[in-house]
Amino acid sequence: MSLSVRPGRGCTVLEVSGELDMATSPQVREGLQRLLDAGDRQVVVDLAGVGFMDSSALGMLVVMFKALREVGGRLSLASAQPAVQSVLTVTSVDRVIRVYDSAQAAEADVVDDSTDR
């Protein structure tokens, strides 16, 4: 499991690679919490490097989505591989958290939303 953070267009991108499961979900949650604590409000989780996600990871993403929403922010997901996209769809998490084909598409939507205000 590896995490890296980079500035995006109007947001912060957390790039995740490896398996997202009960053993690694706490690391991702801590990474997201650090971003939240630092004042980041628009966060895109880039899942391009994630080939597997279990229910504990889904729960963590929903918890962090709610935490960001409570402070006026937004958590989006990007670049989900087919196996991960299937989990998001079957559990209907993709109806709650926006999922984009690419990190660039997610970043563009964040920029569009901020200019709509």
Rank of each mutant, 00 (worst) to 15 (best):
L61I: 01
S17K: 12
P26N: 10
S56Q: 13
E30I: 05
D40Y: 00
E19Y: 00
M64V: 05
Q81C: 10
L14V: 15
V90A: 15
A105S: 10
E107T: 09
M22F: 11
M53F: 03
M22W: 05
V50R: 02
A67Y: 03
V63I: 09
L61N: 00
L35R: 03
V16H: 09
K66Y: 04
Q81A: 12
G72K: 09
L75R: 04
P82D: 11
S17Y: 00
L77W: 08
L20I: 03
D40H: 10
L75D: 02
L61P: 01
E19Q: 10
M53R: 04
A106I: 02
A23W: 11
A38P: 05
V50L: 02
A108K: 03
L20Y: 04
V96D: 02
V90D: 10
L35S: 03
A103H: 00
R34S: 11
V111E: 10
T24N: 06
V93G: 05
Q27L: 12
R95Q: 15
L61G: 02
S4L: 09
V93M: 12
Y100R: 03
T12P: 03
S55R: 05
L36V: 05
S79V: 04
D54A: 15
M22P: 01
L75C: 09
V99A: 12
A106E: 02
A38F: 08
L3D: 05
S25P: 06
V71I: 13
P26F: 07
R69E: 14
Y100S: 13
C11Y: 03
D113N: 07
R6P: 07
I97V: 14
P26Y: 06
S86P: 00
R41H: 14
Q104V: 13
S17L: 04
A83F: 12
M60V: 02
R6L: 14
Q27I: 08
V110R: 02
L88I: 04
A48K: 08
T91Q: 10
R95V: 08
S76G: 06
V87N: 05
L75Q: 07
L75I: 01
V45G: 00
V63R: 11
S86G: 09
D94S: 14
T24I: 08
D46P: 04
R29E: 14
A103M: 05
S2F: 08
Q33S: 11
M22H: 13
V62R: 05
L61A: 01
P7H: 12
A57K: 01
A78V: 10
G51Y: 11
R41F: 11
G73L: 11
R29Q: 15
